[in-house]
Design a protein around this nucleic acid. Structure first.
Length: 448
RNA sequence: GGGAGCGUAGCUCAGUUGGCAGAGCACCACGCUGUGGCCGUGGCGGUCGCGGGUUCAAGUCCCGUCGCUCCUCCCA
């Protein structure tokens, strides 16, 4: 019976993992450079963490969350995002009591039950930071700067990226602004799309987010949140902008940017790429000054962002994925010749010794003909070592440098001396590079 | 959630008005018996996504379903 993967969940095959590993390394390095320590929180949490933290009314919680009871009937959820979990951990472990600003980073799988498409899977991966314990607008700018730094390090073209910035005010500002929006949209309700007519009742903020043409004129004329927030929030927002400018980050104000999660306050931002199609948000974040208190901690301001790994992979994936299909580039390929057990045991032993000498090695396990095995060796390895009855009789293995074509022999006793062994197979240049520019033109290969 | 397109060999794809399921690449063997890259010959490989229906006959037409892709939506 063939069992297939679950919709929206995909495998990352060895050809692709090097890119993922590189991204993960860059992300961790950037976060560490900015002073964020990695936290690893569970993939599974109690449902109420998200329904209360992220918001019952949000699409993420209401429509997209994986929810299931455990064996005792406790309602659990696969995390749809990480901020709520990180804040839960912050409160649970009393990190606030340590007095310092908590700067935490994470990288891992999230789950949302959505219609999959390019750049959007049901299991996907997010990286992000949370800085909990300060209202300093310089910190808002710092969080944006980590992401800017990361994009630079990944070599993403600035011109393809847009940072959008807005403020949605604090808790106290929210209701007056909602009222203002209701007042604005109510007379125009008939020209809004059905979705927005519904939003008008429940969450008028989300109308600003609507992309439908019929709603645009009403949205353009809508009151701006930045005009409705209190003096303190206005001041904060202006300072954030000053800092962001000081850090040389290009941005545009977008008063329709409201974000989909309920916990956001004051600063919100989003980085989009024009090279991503419909799913163009690379990362997004903002302040959540009430969340710690909401989840049972002391009133503590905080800010963070999260980015999607899959979308970075899309932007960075080389157009021609037809890479080395042979797998890991090898230093040595060992071919046992003949099928007598003695030769095969010697070959196995030699392979083990090569690896103890830190030479990346593999052997012919598929029983291919010698000719075929040599072909495989030349595609995958720098050196080949042959072990068969003849070699056993002579007490030495036959070997060949597959780049220069120069054959040589290795006495068996050398294999037990790791340092000497490395000497035999010294590589001045990596097999990869070497294959691009062979020293002997006679053995030049066609370009890969 | 709404709309559209596409599912044929491991991969990329042909397949005519319904009439024996194909090519290239890859893989394997041999030419060349224990020494790679080139060339040649042959071979392996398919529930035509799945399930129904129409038909003497379905990869092809119809219905359903699953998956992928795109738009919309949402967002990472």
């Amino acid at each position: 019976m063939k069992v297939e993967s679950v919709r929206g969940m995909r495998d990352i095959l060895p050809e692709e993992t090097p890119l993922w590993q590189k991204l993960e390394a860059e992300i961790r390095a950037a976060f560490a450079l900015y002073g964020y320590g990695e936290i690893r929180v569970p993939l599974v949490e109690r449902v109420e963490l998200f329904s209360r933290g992220v918001g019952e009314e949000t699409e993420v919680v209401d429509k997209q969350m994986y929810v299931f009871p455990d064996r005792k009937g406790l309602q659990l959820a696969l995390r749809p995002e990480a901020t709520a979990s990180v804040v839960r951990a912050y409160v649970e472990h009393g990190l606030h009591a340590k007095g310092d600003l908590a700067k935490l980073s994470y990288l891992g799988a999230m789950f949302r039950y959505e219609k999959p498409q390019l750049g959007r899977q049901r299991q996907f991966h997010q990286y992000g930071v949370e800085a909990i314990g300060s209202l300093d607008p310089a910190l808002d700018a710092e969080v944006m700067d980590v992401s800017a730094y990361l994009m630079e390090k990944l070599g993403l073209d600035r011109r393809g990226l847009t940072l959008r910035l807005n403020t949605i005010g604090c808790r106290q500002d929210r209701e007056p602004y909602r009222e203002a929006l209701r007042l604005h949209f109510l007379p125009r309700a008939s020209q809004l799309c059905p979705d927005c007519q519904r939003r008008l009742v429940g969450n008028p903020l989300r109308i600003l987010d609507c992309k439908r043409p019929q709603c645009q004129s009403a949205i353009m004329a809508a009151p701006k949140s930045s005009d409705y927030v209190c003096e303190a929030c206005q001041g904060h927002f202006h300072q954030v902008q000053d800092y962001v400018k000081a850090l040389d980050i290009r941005f545009e104000l977008d008063h329709t940017l409201v974000r989909g999660l309920d916990y956001y306050t004051r600063t919100v931002f989003e980085l989009c790429s024009r090279d991503l199609g419909a799913q163009d948000a690379l990362l997004g974040g903002g302040r959540y000054d009430d969340l710690v208190e909401l989840l049972g901690g002391p009133a503590t301001p905080a800010i963070g962002f999260a980015g999607g790994m899959e979308r970075l992979v899309l932007l960075l994936e080389p157009p021609e994925t037809q890479q080395e299909r042979g797998g890991v580039p090898l230093d040595v390929y060992v071919i046992p010749v003949g099928d007598d057990q003695h030769s095969r045991s010697m070959a196995a032993s030699i392979l083990m010794r090569l690896r103890r000498a830190r030479l990346v090695s593999d052997a012919e396990y598929k029983g291919r003909s010698l000719r075929k095995a040599m072909q495989v060796a030349s595609n995958r390895a720098h050196f080949v070592v042959l072990v068969g009855p003849d070699e056993l009789a002579e007490g030495k293995a036959k070997a060949k440098d597959l780049i220069t074509g120069v054959p040589f022999e290795v006495e068996f006793h050398w294999f037990s001396d790791a340092e000497a062994l490395r000497g035999f197979f010294q590589r001045e240049i990596s097999p990869h590079a070497a294959r691009g520019q062979p020293s002997d033109p006679e053995h030049e290969k066609p370009p890969l």
